[in-house]
Design a protein around this nucleic acid. Structure first.
Length: 424
DNA sequence: TCTGGGGTCCTAGGACCC
DNA sequence: TCTGGGGTCCTAGGACCC
């Protein structure tokens, strides 16, 4: 038996999810916007052809894009997350060894008798996701994660053929493809590293694979050394089958319009703390440190800039919304200044531990059992009746600062009330 | 009017200690 | 003349990812 590592990556995932329920959008330019309808984060091929770039601000491209017939959606993470989970189920039928790397890509360890059989499996995986879930995708097959990413890139860019599956298991094929991939397109090589490498004449993936390992380390640190080794076929990055417990947890948002009053800021920060606390409990974690930041818009040059943050160590780690809200509001109060147009704020929880391994403080007088029951009840109600059904009073009822999502599609697959309707 | 959000890992440098 | 050296721990910031 031989084995290979497959990277399966959805094509324009968010756009493909929207198109699934709007088949009339096939062949048209479609983009999905970031939170707050800020900028383009996913583009269909037709939108790319119109010159829409990743991260283009919506307000700048809006007029021209819509005039050209382009469609835009607010992001609908509930929908994307649900489809992502369904894709995971399909992948699980191919191998027990699946690492869900992000919402739209997974590494899958495939085993077979021959290299040809391995490629057949990769092809079957691609077509099953397309047929059962309806999302187009590409598969890259190789010996290491970095090479599998590169193979996937090659499949997407059709460097060898347009089948959507590319194997780099064979050395000659690998060399030929790597020589055609620019160094900046290698997984793990960002703009800073690409510049350093270009300065010593390393401009392709093949160049980095051939670079002396010590030189790579000296120039880029262990991360660069690992990337070079992985490109040469030496696996350094293991498959991570079990999702590791989160080390931090943040809820940060730009405001739909500038926040200028303490009442609004207090409500926003309380609201973010509430959501962060719920996220914490979902992961069965508790936080030891709370941090709050706020700042004015870096883009509004006419405004006086202000940016600050404050941190607090809790007497005892907690996942209690009330404790975390209190801490966050106190911190926000410390850095709040009148007279500024705030564009964004956030609550960051750190120093996370397992919820059942909380260090009990001698000073603590919290009735933990009662607090736990209260939080559990609140989470259950929000889970069954819909998020936000009950929130602590401080989290605000009138939310003028709330982010924009003017173009969100229905949550087709997770809300009974939003199921797609089929008519004759 | 209007420019995303949420992560991880690594490194350099300071504080502190013996 | 000559002013230690090595270890640990912590933190802020950089770099990268989707």
């Amino acid at each position: 038996m031989i084995s290979g590592l497959a990277l399966i990556d959805m094509n324009n995932f968010y756009v493909s999810c929207e198109r699934l329920f709007r088949p009339d959008l096939q062949g048209k330019p479609v983009i999905v916007l970031s939170n707050n309808d800020g900028c383009a984060v996913a583009r269909s091929q037709e939108a790319k052809d119109l010159g829409i770039k990743m991260g283009d601000p919506w307000f700048k491209i809006r007029t021209e894009y819509t005039r050209a017939g382009g469609i835009a959606f607010s992001s609908n993470y509930t929908l994307y997350g649900d489809l992502s989970a369904r894709i995971g189920d399909v992948l699980g039928t191919f191998s027990p060894d699946v690492e869900t790397y992000s919402i739209d890509e997974s590494f899958v360890r495939l085993t077979a008798m021959t290299p040809a059989a391995l490629i057949d499996q990769a092809r079957a995986m691609r077509s099953m996701v397309q047929q059962w879930i309806g999302i187009p995708c590409c598969v890259g097959l190789a010996q290491t994660k970095t090479l599998a990413k590169l193979a996937n890139y090659g499949a997407k860019k059709r460097l060898v053929d347009s089948s959507g599956v590319l194997s780099l298991l064979q050395v000659d094929q690998r060399q030929a493809v790597m020589a055609r991939v620019a160094i900046a397109d290698v997984w793990g090589v960002g703009p800073a590293s690409a510049t350093k490498l270009a300065a010593i004449g390393v401009t392709t993936a093949a160049d980095l694979a051939a670079l002396d390992r010590r030189r790579a380390r000296q120039l880029l640190g262990v991360v660069g050394e690992r990337t070079a080794a992985e490109l040469a076929g030496v696996a350094c990055l293991p498959l991570e089958l079990a999702a590791s417990a989160p080390q931090g947890c943040a809820v940060t948002r730009s405001f739909g319009r500038p926040v200028t009053s303490w009442a609004d800021m207090e409500a926003a920060v309380a609201n973010y703390a509430t959501r962060a606390a719920a996220k914490l409990r979902r992961n069965r974690r508790a936080a030891g440190v709370v941090q709050v930041f706020m700042h004015t818009s870096p883009f509004r040059t006419a405004d006086t800039p202000y940016s600050n943050s404050a941190v607090m160590q809790l007497a005892e780690q907690s996942a209690d919304s009330r404790v975390l809200i209190d801490a966050a509001v106190v911190l926000a109060g410390r850095i709040w200044r009148d007279g500024y147009n705030f564009s964004k704020a956030g609550v960051i929880l750190a120093d996370l531990v397992d919820a059942d391994r909380i260090q009990q403080s001698f000073l603590s007088n919290t009735d933990r059992e009662r607090a736990g029951v209260l939080m559990e009840t609140m989470d259950r109600i929000n889970r069954t009746m819909g998020a936000g059904t009950i929130v602590p009073g401080s989290a605000g009822v009138r939310r003028q600062w709330a982010m924009r999502a003017e173009r969100r599609t229905p949550r087709y697959t997770t809300q009974w009330a939003e199921l797609p309707v089929v008519r004759a």
